[in-house]
């Protein structure tokens, strides 16, 4: 069975970007249009990698990450962001509380998405 990936982003275009990148690959991708939906999915299934948006209506990325970590302390979480200032200090706080995550900068292209995914799930690769 292939690895399972969860994409949490309120923007359909961004979710589509990830889904298209994973099409015809061994990865199985699920999408959630809000933090709440993402956490719900996480309760029922285990994921190997999560791409998380920071700025969302309802639960934002930071709040969602806290909830994710309550359910799964191990799963790698990549916060995909254009560096919103209002969340950056909160991200620093998360680091202090040993809540692990990675940061990647928007916009991500198809190759970057696959590169990140592959390096996380199958070890370092080169383009």
């Amino acid at each position: 069975m292939g690895n399972r990936i969860l994409i949490i982003d309120d923007e359909e275009m961004v979710r589509d970007s990830f889904l298209l990148a994973f099409e015809d690959t061994e990865y199985e991708a699920d999408e959630a249009e809000s933090g709440e939906k993402g956490v719900e999915l996480l309760r029922d299934a285990k994921y190997d990698l999560i791409f998380l948006d920071l700025k969302m209506p309802g639960m934002n990325g930071v709040e969602t990450l806290i909830e994710i970590r309550k359910l799964d302390k191990e799963v790698p979480v990549y916060i995909v962001t254009a560096f919103h200032e209002e969340f950056l200090s909160k991200l620093n706080e998360l680091e202090k509380h040993k809540i692990s995550f990675e940061l990647v900068r928007k916009p991500l292209g198809r190759k970057e998405i696959l590169l990140i995914t592959e390096s996380v799930l199958s070890g370092p690769v080169t383009l």
Partner: peptide, 10 residues
């Protein structure tokens, strides 16, 4: 940023 990410990937 968001629409651009869409365009790029599409």
């Amino acid at each position: 940023n968001n629409p651009m990410m869409g365009i790029l990937n599409f």
